[in-house]
Write a protein that binds this DNA or RNA. Structure first.
Length: 221
DNA sequence: CCAGACGTTGTT
DNA sequence: GTCTGG
DNA sequence: CCAGACGTTGTT
DNA sequence: GTCTGG
């Protein structure tokens, strides 16, 4: 669940503006819009850092715990099973995520995203810091009605106005935000199987499937 | 006390 | 960061 | 998450 | 079947 995401905002400057964080020209060089971001990729997290209320920091998707990297952790158990929960919460800015339907070998990607283009989703994350910098995991929860049609888990989405509650609230305040998103938050768009391979990371990943590649979706009448 | 662990996903 | 095991 | 790989030998 | 890479 939530093993692929998008952040298509064209520029780092616009991303900083949307997030309400200071624009850092040095970090901007590391930014590129993402149409098919995968675990192990460099991404970005928002977290309280140093004396700054909110910083936008580069971080690798996949929290190192022992020898493993975890793209996701169940939100329901994070407070018990991930002992740094109370001390390393973060937000993961995306503007969509993928889930797959269909049989193995014929997977059909669904892009779940806000109706408004470039409207951000703030995913609930937990981050750590290792020898090679920051890394993070995305917390999951039960799906809302839209996502339930495809899968049985979805990422925890934090409402913009409650971002500080997630980042700076106590554990109970933060835990109360671990729940499915409202049913009307996301649009389910079936897209090209080009998105199946993480080697493809371009706007074509978000186009509708061609008839040739999606015979199962084709309407017969 | 210190050392070491700390987990999810989908699929059958 | 914090809990468990030795 | 899905796709793709999954290996050895000796020689430079 | 399982692990790695993207």
């Amino acid at each position: 669940m939530c093993g692929r995401a998008t952040l298509t905002v064209p520029s780092f400057e616009e991303l900083a503006r949307l997030l309400g964080v200071p624009y850092d020209a040095e970090l901007a060089a590391r930014y590129r819009p993402r149409f098919n971001m995968a675990p192990s990729d460099e991404h970005w997290i928002v977290a309280p850092f140093g004396s700054t209320a909110r910083s936008l920091l580069p971080a690798k998707w996949g929290l190192s715990i022992g020898p493993k990297r975890l793209p996701n952790v169940r939100g329901e158990h994070a407070h018990k099973q991930l002992k740094n929960f109370a001390h390393a919460r973060c937000l993961v800015p995306v503007d969509g995520f993928f889930e797959w339907s269909g049989d193995k070998g014929a997977r059909v990607p669904h892009w779940f995203h806000p109706a408004q283009p470039h409207s951000l989703l703030l995913l609930a994350g937990v981050y750590g810091e290792g020898p090679e910098g920051f890394d993070f995991t995305v917390l999951t929860t039960k799906p809302n009605a839209a996502v339930a049609k495809v899968h049985d888990r979805m990422p925890v989405v934090i409402p913009t106005e409650l971002a500080d509650q997630w980042l700076r609230g106590d554990q109970d305040e933060a835990l109360s935000l671990v729940k499915p998103a409202p049913d009307d938050l996301l649009v389910d768009t079936v897209v090209s199987t080009r998105a199946n391979s993480a080697r493809n990371d371009d706007p074509e990943c978000l186009l509708p499937p061609t008839d040739a590649e999606a015979p199962r979706q084709r309407k017969l009448f």
